[in-house]
Design a binder for these strands. Structure first.
Lengths: 199, 199, 199, 199
DNA sequence: AATGAATGAGCGTTCATTCAT
DNA sequence: GATGAATGAACGCTCATTCAT
């Protein structure tokens, strides 16, 4: 993905939106510390000083990227689950949604969320964690339901950690042109939870 | 300089060994970019200028940390597997070994290996990848054997990626005082591959 | 915008007057260089861009503050002297008036006049000096008269410098709630010129 | 005085001494805020980065200038007083010494001490005030003694403030080529305290 | 007049690296 | 080998001033 995808659709035309998209891409590509405010400004098409009319500091930009992507993807998971009638199908929807966020439309920001976490001040980490908790609760609810149905024996909390590891790690290897597509990958991951079904 | 275990046993007393241990710990804690050579020197008990008698650049230190940890853990996996007679037990040994490397004795360097990868120049990335390939081949051999035995249906290559994600992610949540220990966690991960066995 | 007295009575309601009052207070409090035009605008109740419809530059504001306060206090000294019949009483009136200007109604601007003098361009310094000369001539006339009467031996020019130092320095220590009031202080200063009179 | 006088004799050859002298001169000439660290470095003959091997911040340089000049002049007053046998002669020695410090060898730093006081952080202001108190106590002791001898009626504390104003203000007018020399000026100031003596 | 986003030169400070000792 | 002062390019950020609206 070299062409610039907006962090969130519909926001790409505002100065703030362009700035966040450029920042997310640069943060992912070079890391927060190696991305200069001048580079962000250049990519956004403004001067370096102008950047500070939109954000008070470079760290604020990082936080905004993270906040937007957590909120956006929390809502996406909610929407995807709403259409599903069984716990198993809801889990598949969650996996699909998280994969989409990590290797699809919000991949830049999602990678930044994981990789640049420690560049956030402790205060900001707390704020982001609070948002993250809401996101995680969606997973825990579904996994707990499945666990009670006997779909798997392991602790739902640990199962979520394993799933989170599987999805996050795709960043290091998954390509859309590869031998497996996102839909199939989601199903393979689902099987790590409920077992490979006979048939 | 605390009670920190050396990166690799037996090397802790050489200047180079102390330096690499300090660097690994600092790189993990603050990130490569936020670790100054002065901080590494201070922790090692030398002056900042002396550091450059051991390494030509800060990046060289990072590469050395990564190289050592890959070599060390490759050998560890070999040793652990040698004692096992079945493919399933060999896989469990690999998982145990990788978990040990990530949350146990070489955790600082392993986290650095993942998190600071992009701080390596492309040349160095290639060199490290070559070492990494040897390590990965150990996994692929065992997983391919299990796959041929019908232990699971998914592509062994993808299965390795999923396992790698699960083990790497432990960095973000596993604690030795938590509700599950490393041995149990290794078994749970194994079950993600071969299914939860009735019993 | 607090209960701050206007720089000059009757001017407080015009935009220019409010602006100069705010500027004088801020320049005194934080210094010219550390006062931003945004801060002046905020205190005045306008936006930073609007400020430049009233003054061409930040330095122009400083100059205006200085010019106003010199003119105002020159006239005050004239008025106070007009009511006095002897040179000694006229000198006391001058001291009272200068103290009033420094610790009383125009204190902000007077302090700025002394402290921020070098922030004025050389051109502007010349203009302000010309106004200052008129002010100083009032003092020299009275002191020369007293000197000719034999009230003191020292050079009137130097005596003025000593008095000016005494009054200016009050900025660093005088408080209205202190052990000595302005009237008494004026008398004590007068005695530095004509000696402590036996009573 | 265009040729660079050292802040304190004997110190001019160390990097730190050269740096403090250059800083004092520049701070006096352009003010603390308008003096750039690059300018200080240039005058000192080093690069801007090297400056921070000697001082942690620009403010530290300001504080060092102030601390040195207070300490140096406190000792000078002590030495000058030690040679005098009467309170009146000790007061003259103090006035001479303070004049010397303000218009003589430490004039740059003394002016900085007064003019750039608010550029110091509150913490540093407290530290400098503690040193200043020791200096002021020398004056209060002598003035109190004279007051008890009946040499003047006014409060010794206020008398010190008036003297301080007179000496500080010389900065704005005194020149060594002028109609009055430092020795004569000291005597004129002394007479502001004890009256013009007949004879 | 008023607005407020944009400018861009310049600020204090950092830090990997060098090198004379 | 070891030192630590010196380097100088680059950093995040500031702010007086401009100007299209």
């Amino acid at each position: 993905m070299t062409e610039q995808a907006p962090l969130i659709h519909g926001m790409e035309d505002s100065p703030r939106g362009k700035l966040l998209s450029a920042a997310a891409r640069l943060f992912r590509q070079h890391g927060f510390d190696r991305t200069t405010v001048r580079a962000i400004a250049r990519e956004t098409g403004i001067q370096s000083g102008s950047l500070f009319h939109h954000f008070d500091s470079k760290e604020d930009i990082l936080f905004a990227v993270m906040e937007e992507v957590i909120r956006f993807n929390t809502q996406r998971l909610r929407d995807l689950m709403a259409a599903e009638s069984t716990a198993e199908r809801r889990l598949l929807a969650l996996i699909r949604g998280e994969l989409q966020s990590i290797v699809g439309d919000t991949s830049e920001a999602m990678i930044v969320l994981v990789q640049e976490w420690r560049c956030l001040s402790p205060d900001r980490q707390q704020q982001a964690l609070a948002l993250r908790d809401i996101y995680e609760q969606l997973w825990l609810d579904v996994l707990t339901e499945l666990h009670q149905q006997g779909a798997f024996r392991a602790d739902p909390f640990i199962m979520r950690r394993l799933l989170n590891g599987m999805t996050s790690w795709t960043t290091n290897w998954f390509h859309h042109e590869g031998s497996v597509d996102m839909e199939e990958l989601a199903r393979i991951m689902l099987e790590r939870v409920i077992g490979e079904q006979r048939g």
